[in-house]
Design a protein around this nucleic acid. Structure first.
Length: 634
DNA sequence: ATAGGGTTAG
């Protein structure tokens, strides 16, 4: 029998039970756990078969015992309790124990306690330093991290494979490319470039600092590439808008026999979502099904997003339903999916269900909800959500929430109300916000307000040609030729040229990329012929293209190219895809915004009866600065 | 003992 602190007795019969009880008593006394805490007791008992043999009656002075106690700590209070006992028993001199204590403090985000301990540690070895440096890096305490790294350097130590990844991580998180390159230099100087931890961190750093080519160069020179390295590179391409290359790399990785884990699956699923490539999506899904019985939250959420963006909202919902654990991101993803599929009411319906499941909405959830309202014309509902968010959930609207509201009000024709909202908001106004207003002005032909919006856009981004084109078009429409000339002159003076927008289409398991007036595709001739005949069919049935916002002095061919740029994907689809008659065209983006394109799509779907998946050009990073005329609506 | 990669909006 063993006695606990509060003198209650614990009975044990078999030798194993004696060990269990012994272990539990010892742990409980160190951690100040009451002996009637059954859950905790069960937890420790489970560990007993492995650890029991190490436990002795004199465990209070046994470093090994404290080590396991530290590993099993459940809260900061317990850690502090151990800390003081280690201190009393003079065990802090043991670098193993002290380092573990330091590490555990950091794991519970007790940065100050950790730093304190670090300062008082009688003996600091390289592990202590790397734990502390890593802790600062993870916590986002960049200056502290660099300072400690420097001190470590100065204390006569060399940078090593444990400290450098943390420092490189800081360069990544602060987007400090300059420092990143310096560290890279140091890595070479100390001959550490063969370490995969360091190289993978460097590849990641370059990628997240926006120099993807440097990342790739380093990646290509690496002799030993492990799964993490591949994952970093695959994710990097997806993030910079070249998701196609992500999938190429993923295939290469599989080919050389590297088996993906959940994290790399998430990365490639994300790439598929960005591409909107349904066939690829299904292949990845099969691969995942083979390897895993169930989806974890993150992988499941990524899959919901992927299927929704590839056009299959139903499969997205199925996965959502099947997921055992769902967090706020899973719910927001599903809500957003209904939003851009134009099913605003279904998005709204999910909200109370989410609350019933005790998931607290965050600001992104509300962006998704408001977005859903604006794309389904649910004005009243949107206004209600907007005030609910502030009054019940105490979430302050940021510029994205306001953008949804401006979009919502603007599309509904309540332009003055939208403008008032912009005037009165206390958040910094950005490009997206003014673009939303401008879009609404275009729909409702409000020239004066459009002018204000375009001017604001130019003020924020004086070097973005698309804003000048917009303003010029607005002046042209209003017959303000002098103003228009001025704007055109400004464009010439600043040497601004219009950059094309891109679209992608997936046909027969291949992803094709197009831009306006682009003849680079190998089937280009066929595509343009098909396009021409489609346009002819359209015009025969009374379709009048909207030439209003095309630059006025461009030649006819360019004009046509611009107007129908994004029709190319239809054309290629008709040239290359064969699907059963009567299948409807599935869009990943709600179409109700533009009568022209909608009419066009509907018309084509009736005439041709084929299925394609079209992706929204605006989702791609390198398109963001471009001008998409018709593409805006797709 | 200490180090690198993952999910939602825009």
């Amino acid at each position: 029998m063993f006695k606990l602190k509060n003198q209650r007795l614990l009975t044990a019969n078999s030798s194993l039970e004696i060990l269990e009880a012994q272990y539990f008593c010892a742990v409980a006394s160190v951690l100040s756990i009451p002996d009637d805490d059954h859950t905790t007791r069960q937890f420790y008992n489970q560990k007993t078969p492995m650890l029991g043999s190490q436990i002795q009656e004199t465990s209070h002075l046994d470093p090994q015992f404290y080590l396991s106690a530290l590993i099993n700590c459940k809260n900061l209070h317990q850690i502090k309790s151990i800390h003081s006992q280690l201190s009393v028993n003079g065990l802090l001199n043991d670098p193993f124990l002290a380092n573990k204590l330091l590490y555990v403090y950091l794991r519970y985000n007790a940065l100050d306690d950790a730093h304190n301990l670090f300062g008082k540690m009688p003996e600091r070895n390289p592990v202590s330093w790397s734990v502390m440096i890593g802790g600062f890096a993870k916590a986002g305490k960049y200056l502290n991290c660099f300072d400690t790294f420097r001190d470590y350097f100065r204390s006569g130590q060399q940078p090593d494979v444990y400290t450098l990844p943390s420092v490189i991580r800081v360069c990544r998180d602060t987007q400090d490319l300059k420092m990143g390159r310096i560290i890279h230099h140091i890595v070479h100087k100390f001959g550490l470039h063969t370490n995969t931890f360091i190289s993978a961190a460097l590849v990641d750093m370059y990628a997240k600092c926006g120099v993807i080519d440097d990342a790739r160069k380093l990646f290509d020179t690496m002799k030993m590439k492990d799964l993490t390295t591949w994952t970093v590179m695959i994710g990097a391409y997806a993030a910079c808008g070249n998701a196609k290359e992500s999938l190429v790399l993923f295939d290469q990785m599989l080919e050389i026999g590297i088996v993906p884990d959940k994290i790399s699956m998430v990365t490639v699923v994300n790439a598929c979502a960005k591409l909107g490539a349904m066939n690829k999506a299904k292949m990845i899904h099969d691969l995942i099904k083979k390897q895993y019985h169930s989806l974890d939250v993150i992988l499941g959420t990524a899959m919901i997003d992927m299927y929704a963006k590839c056009g299959s909202i139903d499969t997205a919902r199925e996965i959502f339903e099947k997921m055992r654990e769902k967090n706020v991101i899973s719910w927001s993803t599903m809500i957003a999916a209904y939003g851009y599929h134009g099913q605003g009411q279904k998005a709204l319906d999910l909200f109370p269900v989410m609350s019933r499941n005790r998931i607290k909405p965050n600001k992104v959830t509300f962006v998704s909800l408001l977005y859903a309202c604006s794309h389904s014309g649910l004005v009243q509902e949107g206004l209600e959500i907007f005030s609910l968010m502030q009054e019940k959930y105490f979430i302050k609207p940021d510029v994205k929430h306001y953008t949804c509201m401006v979009d919502l009000l603007g599309r509904a024709g309540k332009l003055d109300q939208a403008f008032d909202m912009i005037e009165n908001m206390k958040v910094e106004k950005d490009v997206g916000l003014w673009s939303a207003l401008l879009g609404a002005c275009r729909i409702h032909n409000h020239v004066e307000m459009a002018q204000k919006a375009a001017e604001s856009l130019i003020e924020i981004q004086p070097h973005n040609p698309s804003h000048y084109v917009m303003l010029s078009n607005i002046y042209a429409k209003a017959g303000k030729w002098e103003n228009m000339a001025k704007i055109r002159a400004q464009m010439t003076n600043k040497n601004l040229k219009k950059t094309p927008g891109f679209t992608w289409v997936e046909a027969q398991n291949q992803v094709h990329k197009f831009s306006s007036g682009d003849h680079s595709h190998c089937e280009s001739k066929k595509i343009y012929e098909k396009l021409k005949s489609l346009i002819q069919k359209l015009e025969d049935s009374g379709y009048v293209p909207d030439t209003e916002f095309v630059l006025h002095d461009v030649n006819e061919e360019l004009k046509l190219g611009n107007l129908y740029a994004h029709s190319e994907k239809l054309a290629i689809a008709y040239g290359l895809i064969s699907t059963p008659e009567g299948t409807v065209i599935r869009m990943t983006k709600n179409l109700r915004v533009c009568g022209d394109c909608h009419t066009f799509m509907k018309f084509v779907s009736v005439v041709e009866g084929r299925e394609i998946v079209v992706r929204d050009a605006k989702r791609f990073h390198h398109v963001r600065e471009g001008v998409c005329s018709c593409g805006d609506y797709w």
